[in-house]
Nucleic acid binder design. Structure first.
Lengths: 140, 140
DNA sequence: CCAATGTTTGGACTTTGTCTAATTTAATAC
DNA sequence: GTATTAAATTAGACAAAGTCCAAACATTGG
């Protein structure tokens, strides 16, 4: 995964490419996620975006992240019972979850694969398959 | 998975086997989960247990489920951002998650396997690896 | 019976996320 | 440009899941 240096203009283009009207708030939120290439919670994103001046409200952060997800610009990662993480990498890959620190770490696509395609219940389609490996420090 | 007909006495034994003092509330909560062999949320468990007479408080339900988890009597399944499911089956198996209904369905251990053992970050141990396949009705 | 330890409880509290109605901003037509 | 309409943002009230705490209750051993 090459480290691209994103600008806010890049974000505008990216949003347009996903049929999203690039408003100021949306650009800032996208920039927070993509410039870091990190797994962030809504909380963290809001803190980052409003760090210097107040740029967005809580409602907009949630609205926007849901919009991004619908347009497949980001992916939700659900590993922590108390908060959702947003992942700017929508390509196929899996995650380690550090249960102690709450940190999410990518697993390279080639390092882990799902073997076997189980028959889905009737009339159902698979929306995505993911592997989560929960890890923790050896000597607690 | 054979369908055993559990009694409350069985639960007491099961709890003792896991070094848990079998109190009335704990037996009822274990019975709710094991007699149904289902994936239930804390909410649902509380509703079941208190169906006829009030048997336990909310605090006890949460305390008890956490206790069960610590003693590896049940497993947490985290797929829904808004609630945790408790699974009485602690053996190796994976899940379908019906995004529309919120229903969890077991995938037989043999139908899906994780291929490859990625190197863990330094000083870390894997606590568990699970596959989640999100599914939804074909024609929405 | 008493003390000590373990368990349960109500209720206040926290956190994440949603909802709504009002306001602001942007876009379009004229 | 100005009016009209549509889209986006906002504050703040609200909801739901889960935690916390100090008080009450139960159980056990001596």
């Amino acid at each position: 995964m090459e480290k691209k240096h994103y600008t806010r203009d890049d974000m505008a283009g990216l949003l347009r490419a996903h049929d999203i009207n690039p408003t100021h708030q949306r650009i800032e939120i996208a920039y927070a996620l993509f410039s870091r290439q990190a797994h962030l919670s809504a909380d963290q994103i809001m803190a980052i975006v409003n760090d210097r001046h107040s740029e967005t409200s809580k409602a907009t952060v949630y609205n926007t992240l849901n919009l991004f997800r619908q347009h497949k610009l980001v992916r939700e990662v659900i590993v922590d019972p108390s908060k959702v993480f947003y992942d700017p990498n929508t390509g196929p890959h899996h995650h380690f979850y550090n249960m102690q620190s709450g940190e999410l770490i990518d697993i390279n696509e080639n390092d882990v694969q799902i073997l076997g395609t189980p028959t889905l219940p009737d009339g159902m389609v698979a929306e995505g398959a993911e592997v989560i490996i929960r890890i923790r420090p050896q000597n607690p």
